[in-house]
Design a protein around this nucleic acid. Sequence first.
DNA 1: ACCCGTGTTCGCTG
DNA 2: TCAGCGAACACGGG
Length: 274
Amino acid sequence: MPELPEVELAARSLRRWAGDRTLVAVEAEPTRVLRPAGPAALRPLVGARLGEVRRIGKNLLLGFEGARGPVGAWSHLGMTGKWLRRAPGEPPPRHSRLRLRLDDGATLHYVDQRLFGRFRMVPHARFDEVPELAALGPDPLEQGIDGRRLADMLARTSRPVKVALLDQALLPGVGNIYACEALFRARIDPRRPARSLARAEVDRLARAVLASMRASLRQLEQRRGDVTYVEEGAPNPFAVYDRAGERCPRCGRAKIERVALGGRGTFFCPRCPR
DNA sequence: ACCCGTGTTCGCTG
DNA sequence: TCAGCGAACACGGG
């Protein structure tokens, strides 16, 4: 479910549901989501009030005010993670791995079928001391994209540009879907070595990344959902992702192809980039 | 039965 | 030494 636009929606939902609210209880299953600690590590959250919710790429940074000062929590949704709100008395969703009980009676569930997500305490809410977070590039939506920096980083690798784009040190929040969508928009063949891109192409790609993410955000807002197309059988909203064999929506002449790059399904029009 | 999957990390290799 | 690659993680759907 989650790349940057979906995680941004999750951040907004958490603010709306829990901003300024106090946690009256915290429960968690002993899953790998909590690694390397366990459920006991969540104790400092009990009685804490949620302040700021930040997002960097696909990472949610929750800032709490606890009895003994600031406490932070880092939430990453992995492949199938999501936050859901349940009113008092409602049954818990399937695969609920972590529950935050709020002082208004509602419960926030962290739901994660495949358990690739994470929820980790960050002492004193010092997020910049978490190595995985410090390694991220600047968030493209919040900070914009520095074309020169992106060009420099792409020039340093011979991997396919599609694979290079998934490196969260470049444009954090770009995942398999938006890498495909942005390259299609920019008319760049995803198989090309990253270092072969001309500067003008890098700039086109930067604009395309922002455009495809903003387009999805608008759609997600309108459905006022925390839901993407895979769940609930919603129609595929993307131009090329998961559309192998369909006619290209731009040129109308070639069919969308699927190849594996970096072990991931990659969808593109073989004709448009030329 | 087999393959695939919106993410990340780890270990091996050349 | 290190970029690059594939496997692994865990579960469900086609």
